[in-house]
C-alpha cells in the first residue's frame, strides 16, 4: 500500500499525468458513450461532436491570438477539444451549426478565457455553453430525435441531418425527427401513469444503453485513477436516494429510471469530475457531488427544464470554494495512518 500512496495525489487520483495526457485519456474514455449515442440516435451525434470540437478549437485559437498568448502549446493540451466533445455529446442530436457556434463561444471565450484560462475557470465550460443554449433556445434544445438508429430502415436520411445542421428545419421533417426523451415523459407524467409508458417503444432501452456505455468509459477513468471516485459516487448515491424518495411520494420515475434515463451517468463521470471547477478537498467533494445529485433530482421533479445536470453542476460550481472552507479535510495524522485514512 505504501508504494501506491507515493504515486497518488491526495484525492486518490494518479500522480504524474500532465494535463495533456489527462485530457487525451478522458477524451478517449468518451468514445464508448459517443459510439453508443451515435448508434442509437444517428448521424446527428457525430455532426454535433465534430462541429463542437472544431468550434471550440477555433475559438480557443482566436482567443489566444487576441490575448497575444502562444497558440499551439495551449491548443495541444487538449482541454478545448475535450470541452467541445463534452458539449457536443450533451446537445440533442442534430443541433444546428449556429447553435453549436454560440454554445462554443460561451464555453471557451466566456467561461474559460474571460475568467483567466484553464485552471482559473469558476464554471465547467461545457456546461456553461450547454446551459446558455438551453436557456436561449428552448425549442431547438428540446428537440431530441427519436432513437431511430444509425443504420437500418428507420434511420434518418443524411440529407435531413444536413438540413438540421444548417439550421433549416422544414416542419414535416421536424415532426418525424423529434421524440420524447424519458425525462420529457417524466415531466409530463400523470400522477398515476408511469413515465416509461409515455415513451415510444425502444426509447427507454436506447437511453439506458447509452448511459451504460458512458458508465463503461467512466469506469475506465476510475480504473486508471484519472478521476476522484468521491465525485461520481456521491452524486449518484444522493440522486438514487432522492429518486427513491420521490418514487415513494409520487409512484413515478424510480431509481433506475433517473440514473439511466438522462444525463446522470454522463454528468457524474465526465462533468462533475472536472478537477478545476469542482471542490478540491476530499470531504468537500463528497458534499459537492451529493449537492449536484440532490439539485438534479429536485430540478427534474419540480423545475421547468427536462434535464437538470447542467444547472445543478453550475450551481454547485458556485458553491465549491465555500464548501472547501466549510468542510475542510481533517489535518493529516501520522504518516503510517495516512494510507488507511485516505478512504474516509
Amino acid at each position: 500500500m505504501s508504494h501506491l500512496h507515493r504515486h497518488t495525489n491526495a484525492d486518490g487520483t494518479d500522480r504524474g499525468h500532465d494535463s495533456a495526457t489527462l485530457m487525451r485519456r478522458v477524451t478517449l474514455a468518451c468514445l464508448p458513450g459517443l459510439l453508443a449515442q451515435s448508434w442509437f440516435f444517428g448521424l446527428g451525434v457525430v455532426t454535433n461532436v465534430i462541429t463542437a470540437a472544431a468550434c471550440c478549437l477555433l475559438i480557443e485559437a482566436m482567443m489566444l491570438a487576441a490575448r497575444r498568448r502562444p497558440v499551439s502549446p495551449t491548443i495541444a493540451d487538449g482541454s478545448a477539444l475535450l470541452t467541445g466533445v463534452l458539449l457536443g455529446a450533451a446537445l440533442p442530436a442534430g443541433t444546428s451549426l449556429w447553435l453549436i457556434l454560440i454554445g462554443s463561444l460561451a464555453a471557451v471565450a466566456v467561461a474559460k478565457h474571460l475568467y483567466g484560462v484553464l485552471g482559473q475557470n469558476l464554471f465547467n465550460p461545457a456546461m456553461v455553453g450547454y446551459a446558455l443554449l438551453l436557456v436561449s433556445f428552448p425549442t431547438q434544445m428540446s428537440l431530441w430525435p427519436a432513437p431511430s438508429g444509425l443504420f437500418g430502415p428507420d434511420a434518418v436520411e443524411p440529407s435531413t441531418w444536413l438540413a438540421r445542421w444548417l439550421g433549416q428545419h422544414p416542419p414535416a421533417a421536424l415532426d418525424a425527427l423529434s421524440g420524447a426523451t424519458p425525462l420529457d415523459a417524466f415531466r409530463h407524467r400523470n400522477a398515476d401513469a408511469d413515465a416509461a409508458l409515455l415513451l415510444a417503444p425502444g426509447a427507454m432501452e436506447a437511453w439506458q444503453s447509452v448511459a451504460l456505455a458512458w458508465l463503461g468509459g467512466g469506469l475506465y477513468l476510475l480504473h486508471r485513477r484519472l478521476i476522484d471516485w468521491r465525485l461520481p459516487l456521491s452524486m449518484l448515491v444522493s440522486m438514487a436516494l432522492l429518486a427513491w424518495l420521490f418514487e415513494l411520494l409520487s409512484a413515478s420515475g424510480g431509481v433506475g429510471f433517473h440514473l439511466l434515463g438522462g444525463a446522470a451517468i454522463f454528468g457524474a463521470f465526465f462533468i462533475v469530475t472536472d478537477p478545476v471547477s469542482a471542490a478540491s478537498g476530499r470531504r468537500a467533494r463528497l458534499v459537492y457531488g451529493a449537492g449536484i445529485g440532490a439539485l438534479t433530482m429536485i430540478i427534474r421533479a419540480y423545475g421547468g427544464y427536462p434535464d437538470a445536470v447542467a444547472f445543478a453542476v453550475l450551481l454547485m460550481n458556485l458553491a465549491a470554494p465555500l464548501l472547501d472552507q466549510l468542510v475542510p479535510d481533517r489535518p493529516p495524522r501520522q504518516p503510517a495512518a495516512m494510507v488507511s485514512s485516505d478512504d474516509d
Binding site: 454560440i102 466566456v110 446558455l132 436557456v135 436561449s136 433556445f137 428552448p138
Partner: peptide
C-alpha cells in the same frame, strides 16, 4: 433571438 440576452444575466454580460 437568444432569450438569454433578454433575461437578467444577459444584462450583466
Amino acid at each position: 433571438g437568444m432569450l438569454f440576452l433578454v433575461l437578467p444575466p444577459g444584462a450583466f454580460l
